[in-house]
Structure formats: structure tokens, C-alpha cells
Write a protein that binds this DNA or RNA. Structure first.
Lengths: 348, 348
DNA sequence: TCGAATCCTTGCATCGTTACAGGCGCGTGA
DNA sequence: TCACGCGCCTGTAACGATGCAAGGATTCGA
């Protein structure tokens, strides 16, 4: 239920305290040159009237909102949920509120409009641009933008970026499988998955590179495309492969969430993980510690990505960072767990 | 990079089109009494200058922002992530942006201040109040509030509420286990888990009621407390119970996420799900379809909860809903999967 | 005692939009 | 011919805060 009284304004406070509006403003904003006595009188008035500065009016006047926007596809993808969680907390600790905008295929709005609107009501925008496929020009917005992305922006817009090391992480994951003696390693999650195309290509590149380095051939039968990076696709793709009798002794799934479905398919076929097929994922989402068996995965350094992106964005906002756009790459790390290592063979 | 040109204002458009500011406003807001010719001239000017109404100024003038706030503990809890995802999409389709505010224990701000601030920059607030434990008075805010909650508000504030049927769902889950012949059913997730106290109590109540109805005694040794509803706690609690030699042939985990840890613990002890121990969860998160085996769970009707909450909130906002606060209870539904039913015994 | 420097306080304009009330021109009925 | 109504358009005042520049009060040194 909305309260009934009109909220007190600065004018009310000024009248109550017997000073000018301007003085109240000075007190509220901790300006110097206010006598202690006056300051206290104003503070008393503020308390008595339950006054709170109207943030909208302040935003209009100051031209800033202390709000950031985060644009992503879907929070149902656990990696994004955890990324959003980290960002929400980090932004909150720095005094910023966060508006999350989901822009996936189901969105009928013009992407450019969405960004223009967000730019108007926020001080800066963080965006995962992979799913936007260049449908938006991020360079002409009136607020700074930082892209959370992987795909080399060579063909993209010159925006600040924080990238995870997709190819490098994928190489680590694949190399680990190869070193533990697997030679028939399936890659799960190739395009056409529309929203993950560029990321998928980079992770594939890492997979291929690891094979090249090990001198082991790659069979196209084990390069498995998925329509979306979720467990049901992991399940479907893996089931079909096993049904087709294609030999597989290891799987590198392009994300953990799909890997869940892969593991499910493997056990549904009466095979064991990791004895028959070792599985490695990517993302290190919370769940991955508690699958059966726990999932070996690549940690992309989510926390560091968030911090770096916030540093960049806030730097642009407060003007301490100027000049050419930058790209920060956060190193990926392999996290060994039971899905790729038997207890008898701890390796690490 | 911020663009350099000052964005065009309504005044600029007016001047360009040779009309008054007021007329531009009328065109922008589709007011009647504007000649078609004038209207087109204004629209041309808008296009020529790339004018976009300044939303902050509009918000100040109109006193509304077309933004809602969603206050939750953490998005790392998959149920909340999926709830947020549903809400984001539903709100976006109704023309509202959503600000997500995480308020957990790590938050040093005063909860009352947080709400007062949110109230100022949004048109309404959706909140999961379980973790706020009455640290905030939701009735005196200047915008409507709808609580997404379970715990009977009898001792709470008189706010609009949309509740899932925790006790009923828990009863369904437990009854299902009892009917399939299990008699030594552990309940996982009792308080002290601070943030889930009230919910946990209701789910426990349903568990107890099902036992009462079936005439089967409950052993306190199988009432297992958790410090948080995540997989690691599910794992810990279940491991300890099995280690202690407490007989268990079924588990009702108070949420799916914990159930993941429970399943992990069971297989780590060399036991099979569901043959040795059947497991049922609560929430029906996306993952649950793809654990090994897939998890039987209670679907709380997330989608319907979101729609009902939005209906309530927007009704209050636009004034079509007035008068006493309401409580909507969304029915829960049991989703049978492999973690509680063997293939030989499909039951349903 | 006077002038200047310092401290404190204040009106007014402004951010960009929408609401109010009124003005002007034209057509219509008496 | 006049009054009236209607359609279209406009000037001005808000919304509630902050920035500017100047004004009054006080203190200090000479």
C-alpha cells in the first residue's frame, strides 16, 4: 500500500528549519561553509520530516543516475546467473544499482532502441554482445559501454572489452584429456547455436590446437553441433553419438550446463564417467562441484572478469580513464575433478 | 565511448519544426488535436535530429519511471535465477524495466534505506521477504509492494502476497515417497538455515502431515538441518547421515539444488538412486531434468507466480486494483522422474 | 576605526519534460 | 451579423534538486 502523505521535499525541510533550500542542499551534500549549528538544525528537520532527497530530480539535475545496465541473453543459463550475481554484488558495494535487461530472440524490441533507452537512464552499460551479432552500434551511445565477450573484436566495434580466454581454456581442457590417454574426444557445442556462435568457434579452436600439439587427428564425427548450450542439447547430442556407435572416450563440452546432459546421456547408456568416458566442461558453475561425479571444468575467472569490467566502466564514467579502448583478457584455469580423473589416478 | 554531440531536446525539435515545445510533446505522446500535417512535420524533425525523449525528465515530471525493483537474496540459487529470468521477460513484455537488488547477509546497507531508495526510483517492488526477517516495514513505502513468499503472513505486514504452496507441495512429495513403499524418509533442509527459515518450516510441516496421514512415525534422526540450501550442504548432511549408519530409504530435500548434493553423497557411498534411496526435491529448476537420474521434484508454478505477482503489482500501480491486500496461493505440482521411480515401476 | 578577507547563507536560473489554461481562427446556427 | 463551439496550438508554470554568483555577517590585521 502506498503511503498517503506526500513525501517531504527540500523546500519543506528548508521551511521547517528556517533556512533556504540551498542550505539544505549544502547540508545534504556535505558541502563546507555551513555553520555546525545550522547543519544540526537542518539535520533535525530532515529527521523530523523523514525527508529523503528525490533521486529522480537529482538525476535530472546532475545528469547521472548511479545505475548501471547489464545486458545479457538469459539468466536461465547458470553462467550468466552467476555472472549477474557477482556483478550485482560488486556494483552494489561500489554504490551502483543494476538494471538487468534480457535481450534474446524472443525480444521484439529494436536492439538499438533498447540501448539508447538504457543509455538514458544509466551511467554505463555492461553487455554480453555475442548474442547481438552486430545488431547494435555500441560506439555512438551517450554513456560508456564495456563488452563482456570472448570473440576477438577484430570485426566488431571499438569498445572496451573484458574477454575470457576461450581458446586457451579449451586448449587446457582438451590437453588434459589427451594427456590422460584419451584419443577419441568429442567436442560438444559447435555452432549453429545462434547465441553462442563466436564463443563456440573459439572453444573449438582451442580443442583443435590441443590436438595439433599432441599430434592426434580429429575426427569430424566427434565434432558435435548443438542448438543451444543447455543440458537437453548435451543429452541429445551425446545420445545420438553413442547410439550411432561412434567411439568416444572423452568429451569436452563447451559449457558445464551441457556437460550435465552429456553425463546423463552417458550413464543412461550404461557407461561410466570417467572410466569409460571422461568429461570436461567449461565455466565452473556452482553445480559442477556436485554432479556425480564432480565435473572437471575450465574456470574462466568470473570474479576477475567482473572486477575488471567494473573498473573499466567506472573509470570511463568518472573520467579517470580516457583515450583509446582497451581489451583485458582474463586467464582461464583448469579445475580437476572426478569426471576426468579416477581416484586411482589423481594426476595432480 | 560517449558520443560527443549534446543530445537533441524537445526544444530543439520544436525550433526545427517551427512549432511550440508543447506541440512536440503532444505528438510524442500521441495526444489528439494535432493536425496531420503538423504531426508529420514534428515527426520529421524528430527523425532529422535523432531526438529521443529524456526519460529522466519525463520520470520527474510524470512521477513514474516504468521500472520495477526485484529484491532477492542471491542469484546463485538457481530457483531465484530462474524466477528472475521469468520476471525480467514478463516485465519487459509489459513495458517495464527491472532493477535487481541483492540483499543478503553481506549487505551492510540498512534494509529500510534500500527499500526507500528503490521506492523512489521505481513504480513498484517485488520482494522475497523471507531473508529480511521483518527488518523492514513494507507498508509505509510510497510505491506498491508485492511479496513473493510462502510463510503465512499472519505475523507479517499486511502486503499483497503471492505464495507458493510450500506445505502442500511438501506433502505431495512425501506422500509420493510413502506410497512407493519408503518408510525411512529423511527431510533435508530444516532450519537453522537463516535465509530459508520460514520456508523450511512449512516444507517440514508438509512432510510431517504426509507421515501423519499415512500413519507412519517420523524419526528425529532423519530430520536434517542445513546451513544453506546449496549442494555442498546437501552433500554434507547426507554424508554424515549415511556415515552415522542411520537407515534411510528415501529423501525429501527441501530444494532441488540441495538434492544435487544429496544424490552425489548417495552415489559416493556406493548406493543407488532410486533403488536404495529415492530422492525428491522441490522447485523444479532446469537442471533437475538432467541429473543422473533425473530428479523427481515439486513444481511450485514459477511462471504462474510471476504472472500473478505482476498482475497484482501493476494493478496497484495503475490504480485498477485498490482496497485490502490480497494473497494469491499458487498450487504446487509433483513432477515424477527417475530419482524416485524405477523404470519397472512407472506408477504414473 | 576602517578595509579586506573569510565564513555562511541565499535567490535565481536550470535540467527536459508534461499539465494547465487560454488564445486564435474558422465554421455553423440563429 | 453575431455568438458560440470546436479544433489546433502556445506560453508559462510546475516536478525537486543543484550550480552560480552575489549578498550579509563576522573576524582579523593594520
Amino acid at each position: 500500500m502506498p503511503g498517503q502523505r506526500r513525501p517531504a521535499t527540500m523546500r519543506d525541510v528548508a521551511q521547517f528549519a528556517g533556512v533556504s533550500v540551498r542550505t539544505v542542499s549544502n547540508v545534504v551534500n556535505d558541502q563546507p561553509y555551513v555553520r555546525d549549528e545550522t547543519r544540526r538544525a537542518v539535520k533535525d528537520a530532515i529527521a523530523a520530516l523523514g525527508y529523503r532527497p528525490n533521486l529522480i530530480a537529482r538525476n535530472l539535475r546532475r545528469g547521472s543516475t548511479n545505475t548501471l545496465a547489464l545486458v545479457l541473453p538469459r539468466l536461465t543459463q547458470p553462467y550468466f546467473a552467476e555472472l549477474a550475481d557477482d556483478l550485482l554484488t560488486a556494483a552494489r558495494d561500489r554504490g551502483y544499482a543494476v538494471l538487468i535487461d534480457p535481450t534474446d530472440e524472443s525480444d521484439t524490441r529494436s536492439v538499438q532502441d533498447v540501448f539508447a533507452q538504457l543509455a538514458m537512464i544509466t551511467d554505463g552499460i555492461l553487455v554480453d554482445p555475442t548474442h547481438l551479432a552486430g545488431r547494435v552500434d555500441l560506439t555512438s551511445l551517450p554513456v560508456p559501454v564495456v563488452a563482456l565477450t570472448s570473440h576477438s573484436g577484430r570485426h566488431g566495434e571499438p569498445v572496451d572489452r573484458v574477454a575470457m580466454d576461450d581458446a586457451g581454456g579449451a586448449r587446457l581442457a582438451t590437453a588434459h584429456l589427451l594427456e590422460s590417454g584419451r584419443t577419441q574426444i568429442a567436442a560438444v557445442g559447435l555452432p549453429p547455436a545462434a547465441v553462442t556462435g563466436p564463443t563456440g568457434r573459439l572453444r573449438l579452436a582451442g580443442y583443435l590446437e590441443a590436438h595439433r600439439e599432441a599430434g592426434i587427428d580429429v575426427s569430424p564425427r566427434r565434432l558435435l553441433a548443438a542448438n543451444g548450450w543447455d543440458p537437453s542439447e548435451g543429452y541429445r547430442v551425446m545420445s545420438e553419438t553413442l547410439d550411432a556407435g561412434i567411439p568416444v572416450d572423452g568429451v569436452f563440452a563447451f559449457n558445464d550446463y551441457m556437460a550435465m546432459g552429456v553425463i546423463h546421456a552417458i550413464s543412461a547408456h550404461g557407461l561410466r564417467v570417467p572410466e569409460d568416458i571422461a568429461v570436461v566442461g567449461f565455466d565452473d558453475i556452482g553445480f559442477s562441484q556436485h554432479t556425480s561425479p564432480p565435473l572437471t571444468t575450465v574456470s574462466p575467472g568470473r570474479r576477475r572478469i567482473v572486477e575488471a569490467a567494473l573498473d573499466m566502466l567506472l573509470g570511463r564514467i568518472d573520467g579517470t580513464r580516457t583515450g583509446a579502448t582497451e581489451v583485458a583478457v582474463v586467464e582461464a584455469e583448469l579445475v580437476l575433478r572426478g569426471s576426468s580423473v579416477t581416484k586411482a589416478d589423481p594426476e595432480a
